[in-house]
Design a protein around this nucleic acid. Structure first.
Length: 461
RNA sequence: UCCCCUGUAGCUCAGCUGGUAGAGCAAGCGACUGUUAAUCGCUGGGUCGUAGGUUCAAGUCCUACCGGGGGAGCCA
């Protein structure tokens, strides 16, 4: 099927072709012809179609050519006498495939608020912005796979359903086949042995633990799949269902990990800038006037490595009034992270070696007894886009940390086995795919960076 | 979950100190035009989120609930 993108790029006057798509707008001339702006999603631009009134069935058909209608058109490519396009299509046949009642079609030839478009998520991909987001998302996804494939990483599909009830932090969605309505009335303890898996099960919050299994068997690997968090988060950067990229690399320490994260982000940005030029220019013009500048700035500068302890020092000596006090041992607040990346360094930074008391059990303990080999990549505007660490590979230290975090090592027997049999230093991180899309497009709200956002009280479509 | 803002025609909003609703855009029709966010004219379209309350009278004040947005926390 011929697409408008390739027609606009390659076709020359004189060539005949057939094209299908959706009408964005129609302008009539009473002197006997009409202009149709046709879009098929292959690119931002529309193909201008000229329909003379001698086209068979013109009188009846042209009335049905309204915004949103689908049409099939045959015609000849012409040099366009008008401004705004190199070529246009002179129609010889026009067929309306599907009408679109202009009285009720929710998308109009005007700007719509993102809040409104979110309510019509089944139609918003037909708008300029959401078409562009879908194409950028696709390009970013392809770039992610390319990056890892080119570097010898194995793509691993880790489970969606899990029975390890404490993969990390975060509330989990329960998965059950038990009859909840009956249980609600029964007032007895729930007998999970009667449930589908014979014990409590949930949707995964991370594929990391399973990825570690393959990393310590087959070498560098990565997962790229859906992740679920049942947190009651209502922000512009949280979703209950989102996609996460999680590489895991054996024989790699935290420095290797930070280098990988930086190379990875730069590779994806660079690829998207190259393959989605038109869409990126649109974002820069209509969504965020600084997005191209920001992305190029990221490409041109090294991510600044800053230890948590140094960051605390910078924040303490900053001439700023903090809503939350800065104190070693406490997690950094949004205002602190934003200050560091947006004001102090003015570029992405990698914070590393956090206090062990605020980080999960699997992060490698440092000799100082106070910190762990954790790292967060923070970017301007979005904040944390990557969280990762070197993993604790020493069995006794790992078990000690589990107990410290009130976890039962028995529950993680297969995870600790990896330390019992041929343990190796290894590292990895998780990247929130939709946050990356936010960074790439300049879109303010993460709900507009995924086709069908799931947030508290919202799972339509 | 907490704090703040908000909910009026298909969409975006106005409606000041309470007296039963208006604009722009969209849509329909007409005019005009190789047009391109086209332009001009006319027309239709709203039990003002829901439920109570105060008042002679509420879109306008009060309460609760529901929805939307922003910020915070949690994190990716």
């Amino acid at each position: 099927m011929l697409r408008i993108k390739s027609i606009l790029e390659n076709k020359q006057p004189g060539e005949s072709l057939e094209i299908c798509g959706w009408v964005r707008t129609r302008r009539d001339s009473k002197h006997g012809f009409s202009f149709i702006e046709l879009n098929d999603g292959s690119c931002m631009k529309n193909l201008q179609i000229v329909v003379d009134n001698d086209v068979p069935g013109y009188e009846e058909s042209i009335k049905l050519v309204t915004t949103g209608a689908s049409v099939k058109i045959t015609g000849t490519v012409k040099e366009s006498p008008g401004k705004g396009q190199r070529i246009e299509l002179q129609a010889t046949h026009l067929e309306v495939l599907g009408i679109s009642d202009p009285e009720s079609f929710p998308l109009q030839k005007k700007k719509h608020s993102f809040e409104y478009l979110r309510e019509i998520a089944h139609l918003r991909p037909r708008s300029n912005t959401f078409g562009a987001i879908a194409r950028v998302r696709n390009a970013a996804s392809a770039a992610i796979h390319n990056f890892f494939q080119e570097n010898g990483f194995l793509n691993i599909q880790t489970p969606i359903i899990t029975t390890s009830d404490c993969e990390g932090a975060g509330e989990m969605f329960h998965v059950t086949t038990l009859d909840l309505a009956r249980l609600a009335q029964a007032k007895t303890e729930i007998d999970y042995s009667q449930d589908f898996f014979g014990k409590p099960a949930s949707l995964t919050v991370s594929g990391q633990l399973e990825a570690e299994i393959f990393a310590t068997s087959l070498g560098p690997c990565y997962t790229f799949g859906p992740t679920f968090r049942a947190e009651n988060s209502n922000t512009t950067r949280h979703l209950a269902e989102f996609w996460m990229v999680e590489p895991e690399v054996p024989f790699a320490d935290l420095d290797d990990n930070m280098r990988l994260a930086e190379d990875f982000i730069k590779y994806v940005i660079s690829h998207v800038l190259k393959s989605c030029q038109e869409d990126m220019e649109f974002f820069n013009l209509r969504i965020d006037k600084t997005v191209l500048e920001t992305l190029h700035h990221i490409l041109d500068h090294e991510f600044k490595r800053v230890s948590y302890t140094d960051a605390i020092e910078i924040l303490t000596s900053a001439k700023k009034k903090w809503e939350y006090p800065v104190e070693w041992g406490h997690d950094l607040q949004s205002e602190h992270e934003r200050y560091l990346t947006e004001e102090h360094f003015k570029k992405p930074i990698i914070l590393h070696d956090y206090p062990r008391s605020i980080k999960p059990f699997y992060m490698r303990c440092n000799e100082d007894g106070k910190t762990v080999r954790a790292m967060d990549v923070l970017v301007p505007r979005i904040g944390e886009i990557i969280g990762g660490s070197q993993r604790e590979e020493r069995l006794d230290t790992l078990e000690g940390r589990m107990k410290e975090c009130n976890l039962d090592p028995q529950e993680y027997w297969w995870y600790t086995d990896l330390r019992k049999y041929g343990t190796v230093p290894h590292s990895g991180f998780g990247l929130g795919f939709e946050r990356l899309i936010q960074l790439l497009t300049g879109m303010q709200n993460i709900r507009d960076c995924i086709p069908f956002p799931r947030t508290p009280k919202n799972a339509e479509f």
